[in-house]
Write a protein that binds this DNA or RNA. Structure first.
Lengths: 152, 152
DNA sequence: CATATTTCAGTATCACTGAGATCA
DNA sequence: CTGATCTCAGTGGTACTGAAATAT
């Protein structure tokens, strides 16, 4: 006879995937109200955090395919949030920079993200949230950066 | 060298989504070697955990659309892992049950999942893993109060 | 007839592929 | 010419939508 049936919730990785997906979906919904998608936020954040850089660099950093990065930057550029110009030093490259409006948009979206996070983590106390963050950060830093693809 | 901008990694929900997606992708890769997908494992586990049930019940429990559940069960049924029969009490319903082979397949897949989990959680000590599991379980249970009577 | 369950066909979106264009 | 970057059209898989078929 089979004893106690295996349950999915006994797998930590199952809970990880489920809760992560939930958080992601909630933020996506929130961003959609402002006509943004998750990659927009990630891209703006990457530009703010690491300064002007080539499209290829940006795509690698976020683990997005260069072809998709082109479309993303088209959208962001059309809204005046990023500026694209040929690198004078190497005219094959396109240097992407964050505009003033881009900085403002990023600040707004990060505020939204913080609000969503507060909802998602509401079952936990402040020290527990810090603890969770520390554990997840170690998992995050351990897996190969730039090998896998996914959404932010 | 590429590093993720600090603004995103300061969001716990970003780490949640990323690590969850990573775990999910690793398991999917592993299951694919046996010609299974993640939904197959989830479905088998739900049947083992909650016993024979209608397709609709199963779909709701796993938050899958009924149309997709039909396809999933076609695949599992074709491999002899589940059996489908009309409910004698209400012939609109289709009662789904796990076969012997289904139980065996589930045990194998759960072993695979445990192996993947051990890899993903390798940066953490045993007590830390327990701690993480407890925190995630509370987030998971707070997620959607609509499925509080099921196992997954 | 009104409702519930299952099934099938079609749509939408996302990650990815590959070919061509530009430039060093 | 070789190699790198960027662009664009198209593919495949997954999640969803809507409606017909079957039964209560």
């Amino acid at each position: 006879m089979t004893s106690t049936p295996p349950t999915l919730t006994s797998l930590t990785t199952y809970l990880l995937a489920k809760t992560g997906r939930n958080a992601r979906a909630r933020l996506a919904e929130r961003l959609a109200a402002r006509e943004f998608r998750l990659w927009h936020l990630s891209t703006l954040a990457a530009l703010a955090g690491s300064g002007p850089q080539s499209q290829r660099e940006l795509a690698q950093r976020l683990a997005v395919h260069p072809s998709d990065m082109a479309k993303l930057l088209d959208e962001l550029g059309g809204r005046g949030l990023v500026a694209r110009e040929r690198d004078p030093a190497d005219r094959r490259r396109v240097l992407v920079t964050l505009t003033e409006d881009g900085h403002a948009a990023l600040a707004e979206l990060m505020t939204e993200a913080a609000a969503v996070q507060d909802t998602v983590l509401s079952p936990l106390t402040a020290p527990e949230r810090t603890l969770l963050h520390g554990l997840l950060l170690r998992l995050y830093n351990a897996d190969d950066p730039g090998k896998r693809n996914g959404q932010p």
